[in-house]
Design a binder for these strands. Structure first.
Length: 604
DNA sequence: CAACACTGTCATGAC
DNA sequence: AAGTCATGACAGTGT
């Protein structure tokens, strides 16, 4: 094999020599075609390849060493510095500095004196760097938040755009490795082939260097200097941006501001939430549009004597009759219904012993309310309210949380309680004087029943007597031994009360019926007008049709001719149609006869 | 003072 | 049969 090759090569060389001597351009020097020369070159090439493999092995190890200090970001697919395990401020900074120095070294004109390989490498790097800058910016944008502030703290000069800082010295080991690596001419091709992969790892920290020079990165250091010296640059605006929506979530960049906000929040809580928590009635009253400011309401509440069980019981029990009741005309000329007088800051004088009247006044209001809502759920409520007058007054203190849970319902109840005054209900007694008169009248009536009950010492309120269901009423009556007069009075009171409500409902229904009848009357009038309009329109249409039919009739009649060709006179003949659709020419003289005999249709 | 409206009460029938 | 409701009628009161 070798001999054949050498033989053929020798012949080839002879031929080449001949050609060379003839000065034929072979496209190459003669040594190129010399086997010995090529043999020597082949050996040299193999030796270089071995060395190249060695260098590549070393290069891979170097890359591994670099990659060992980097970490592949799974999200971005890029390498980021591996977070320091324990105290890595110095150690983790090393690769960054190294790569930084690489980039600076490549940019440095003095570094061009290494050799041709390094020059080529530097040129290649320069091109690649400009291409990778934008990519690496993104890389730092992602990787920057992962760095610790100490890790990314930069010198003040680096914050401002300007000339790049002087190149920093890399560690001696890595520098030597790079020197050896770059000094190999054989590595050029390898570097060119692997340039992209290598750049991804070796130029990764370039963004750090370019980031330092890039004015766009002024935002980046701020995040890390936040809370130290740069707190008043961006965070204020940042805080303003988020202050309205999530004030508590914004970081307290300004402690004084935070201190100002905190007491305000506390004040709000104490003024409203706390008040709502412990004085729901005041809040309800305030929200229901009653007079009095917040402070006034609170002061009233604070000054208002608390309810005692005795007072509360006196509102509805028979004790009320013994407690002060009485003179209907002498008390509370300006008092409203029971609830409003209690909730009104001005009307709730502590020494007033008018609970019984308030109770009955409220009962009257309830009647009005029932009048407005007969058979509805509010009627049940009214019954319960009248019967459970005490618990309802006690409710603001007892069922506090329930009231807080249902403020709307309370707010809906209160206005109705306020407008249950008969004077306001009637709609025409709006003057205060009329109001007083109405009240006196109502009180007089109530006092009459109440006085009767009091005279007979009946231990029930009129409300209870009137509004209790039959079973409850009988049970209540069975619990007390009453004589005949008392029983009769109780039944009369109940009958009158029931009848009163019934009369109110009846009148209300009567009015509603009247309104409904009026509405029906209006609608009937409208229908009448519409029907009359339709009738007139139909008459007009009928006239028009008759006119058209008459003209058609005459036209057809004029076209008729007898045997002599003479036309028929419409005054002597007429066209009539039978039931089967056939048309006859009938003499007018025989009209009545034909009509009766043949049952022909008369002309239109 | 008369007229009117509102309201309470009574009587009566129906359920 | 008693209770309740509906309704007409009447009377008292206020405007």
């Amino acid at each position: 094999m070798d001999m054949e090759v050498m033989h053929s090569s020798q012949q080839d060389m002879d031929l080449i020599d001949i050609l060379w001597k003839q000065d034929i351009d072979l496209g190459a020097r003669r040594e190129v075609f010399d086997y010995n020369h090529r043999q020597k070159e082949h050996e040299l090439r193999r030796q270089r390849e071995l060395e190249e493999e060695k260098r590549q092995h070393q290069l891979r190890e170097q890359e591994k060493a670099l990659l060992a200090q980097l970490q592949l970001d799974e999200e971005t697919g890029e390498y980021i510095p591996r977070p320091p395990p324990s105290a890595p401020l110095q150690s983790t900074a090393t690769p960054l500095e190294v790569t930084k120095n690489v980039s600076f070294t490549e940019e440095n004109e003095d570094a061009m004196s290494f050799d041709e390989c390094l020059q080529l490498l530097a040129e290649t790097f320069a091109v690649e760097e400009t291409e990778n800058t934008s990519v690496c910016l993104d890389t730092t944008a992602v990787a920057a938040p992962m760095m610790s502030p100490e890790q990314t703290v930069l010198p003040p000069a680096s914050l401002t755009p300007g000339p790049p800082p002087p190149p920093q010295r890399m560690s001696p080991d890595l520098e030597q490795a790079w020197m050896e690596l770059l000094s190999l001419p054989e590595l050029q091709q390898c570097l060119n082939l692997q340039m992209e992969d290598t750049l991804e790892t070796t130029t990764y920290p370039l963004p750090n260097s370019s980031e330092v020079q890039n004015p766009n990165y002024t935002f980046y250091p701020m995040n890390h200097t936040d809370g130290e010296t740069n707190t008043n640059v961006c965070p204020a605006q940042f805080m303003n941006t988020f202050d309205g929506s999530v004030p508590n979530m914004a970081p307290p960049d300004n402690p004084s501001q935070m201190k100002e906000k905190a007491p305000q929040l506390n004040a709000n809580f104490t003024a409203e939430s706390f008040c709502d928590l412990f004085y729901p009635s005041a809040v309800l009253e305030e929200s229901s549009g009653l007079e009095g400011s917040e402070s006034k309401a609170k002061s009233d509440i604070s000054n208002k004597p608390p309810f005692t069980p005795v007072d509360l019981y006196s509102l509805s029990s028979g004790d009320a009759f013994d407690r002060g009741k009485p003179n209907p005309t002498a008390e509370m000329p300006d008092s409203d219904s029971g609830i409003s007088s209690n909730t009104s800051p001005n009307a709730s004088s502590p020494g007033k012993s008018s609970h019984g009247d308030e109770s009955f006044g409220f009962s009257d209001s309830d009647m009005e309310e029932l009048d407005h809502n007969p058979g509805s759920a509010e009627s049940d409520y009214s019954d319960m309210f009248s019967l459970n007058f005490q618990p309802d007054h006690l409710q603001p203190a007892i069922s506090l949380f329930a009231a807080m849970g249902q403020p709307q319902q309370r707010q809906e109840k209160n206005p109705r309680q306020h407008k249950t005054d008969p004077a306001e209900e009637s709609g025409h007694d709006n003057t205060p004087f009329a109001k007083d008169k109405q009240k006196k009248r109502s009180e007089k009536r109530l006092s009459r029943d109440e006085q009767r009950a009091k005279a007979l010492k009946i231990p029930f309120t009129v409300d209870m007597i009137t509004n209790l269901p039959v079973d409850d009423f009988n049970e209540m009556m069975s619990k007390h031994q009453l004589n005949e007069a008392q029983l009769a009075l109780v039944r009369d009171i109940r009958r009158r009360g029931k009848n009163k409500v019934a009369a109110q409902n009846c009148r209300k229904r009567k009015m509603e019926n009247i309104v409904g009848l009026e509405s029906n009357l209006d609608s009937l009038k409208d229908d009448k007008e519409r029907l009359q309009s339709e009738k007139s329109q139909n008459i007009t249409n009928l006239k028009e049709m008759k006119k058209q039919l008459n003209s058609l009739y005459l036209e057809v009649f004029s076209m008729l001719r007898d045997e002599k060709g003479n036309s028929y006179s419409p005054s002597d003949y007429s066209l009539q149609q039978s039931t089967d659709g056939s048309v006859f020419l009938v003499p007018r003289i025989k009209k009545t006869f034909i009509k009766s005999e043949d049952n022909l249709l008369s002309p239109l």
